[in-house]
């Protein structure tokens, strides 16, 4: 059985993923983020984060709430600019949002005035794709995420799980190189969550986009990812990067019985508990 590789050095050199030549898709270089709080004080949310994410890798960022993991994702998205350091995508410094990085938020953030089809078509139309073409592609995507027949529904008429399926389809539609998922299943019930995890993996297996996935669920991170980045709180730092060496395609039923999967979960939980103790002693 393979031992969990724990690296204290966050600047992990990119390792080739099985069978695929690795190239860096995202490179985060010594990024820090400081927020002004009330008064003249400032809060260091992220401290000296360096991380390289390979093209086609599924990487999760795991940590307690308030560790700045979402902020890190927003920096890669270009929605927030870092106080220090630089983040790059395909070697180019990130200066703002762009269609090469597609976000999926916990809050879904659908356009409520557009129906399901209109939401999914929105990005394509913005990219100048012809209406008929955008519609055909969007219908196909909706079928893929299991929402065939719901094209004319408005977001308010959908359940949380369905809304998130629409949001995923909406982002996949404009074909970003990187998917940025900010606790996408955090607001869903356990059953829906499991189903969406399975479906996300199936979708990902097809085109192997680079995914940066923020979560606070250890099981979710291990089940989905190639690498799990464990963060500490206040200031947010990378504690370790754990390589998840489990075969793909992954089947939930098999994995839950797999001793290696279980050990990853236990080991990472222990790491996070240690993170908690650090706070107490700090």
């Amino acid at each position: 059985m393979k031992v969990v590789t724990l690296r204290s050095d966050a600047l992990a050199e990119s390792e080739p993923l099985s069978g695929k030549p690795a190239s860096a898709m995202i490179h985060i270089d010594r990024v820090s983020q400081r927020f002004q709080t009330s008064g003249r004080q400032s809060h260091l949310a992220l401290s000296d984060i360096s991380l390289t994410i390979d093209d086609g890798a599924f990487v999760s960022i795991l940590g307690p709430s308030g560790c700045g993991k979402s902020t890190l994702l927003y920096i890669v998205g270009g929605f927030v600019s870092p106080s220090d350091g630089v983040a790059r995508v395909k070697g180019k410094a990130i200066t703002g949002p762009g269609p090469d990085r597609g976000p999926v938020f916990q809050e879904f953030a659908l356009f409520p005035w557009k129906n399901v089809l209109g939401n999914v078509m929105y990005g394509l139309r913005q990219q100048g794709v012809k209406h008929s073409e955008a519609e055909a592609k969007s219908r196909k995507l909706l079928e893929m995420v299991g929402l065939k027949g719901y094209e004319n529904f408005y977001p308010k008429e959908l359940s949380g799980g369905m809304k998130q399926r629409v949001a995923i389809a909406r982002t996949l539609a404009y074909n970003p190189a990187v998917l940025l998922m900010d606790e996408p299943f955090g607001a869903l019930d356990a059953h829906t969550r499991t189903r969406l995890q399975n479906d996300l993996l199936n979708i990902w297996e097809r085109d192997r986009k680079t995914v940066l996935f923020v979560t606070h669920s250890v099981e979710e991170a291990v089940f989905l990812s190639d690498k799990v980045v464990v963060m500490t709180r206040s200031p947010g730092r990378i504690k370790v990067v754990v390589d998840i060496d489990l075969p793909r395609p992954r089947k939930r039923a098999e994995l839950l019985l797999d001793a290696r999967y279980q050990k990853y979960v236990v080991d990472i939980e222990k790491l996070i508990d240690d993170t908690g103790e650090d706070e107490i002693h700090a």
């Binding site: 949002p97 269609p99 990005g123 990219q127």
Partner: peptide
């Protein structure tokens, strides 16, 4: 207006 909605739009290139 939800910030994330605007971010989604910005990512699409608006």
């Amino acid at each position: 207006v939800e910030e994330k909605m605007l971010w989604s739009g910005a990512a699409m290139g608006l």
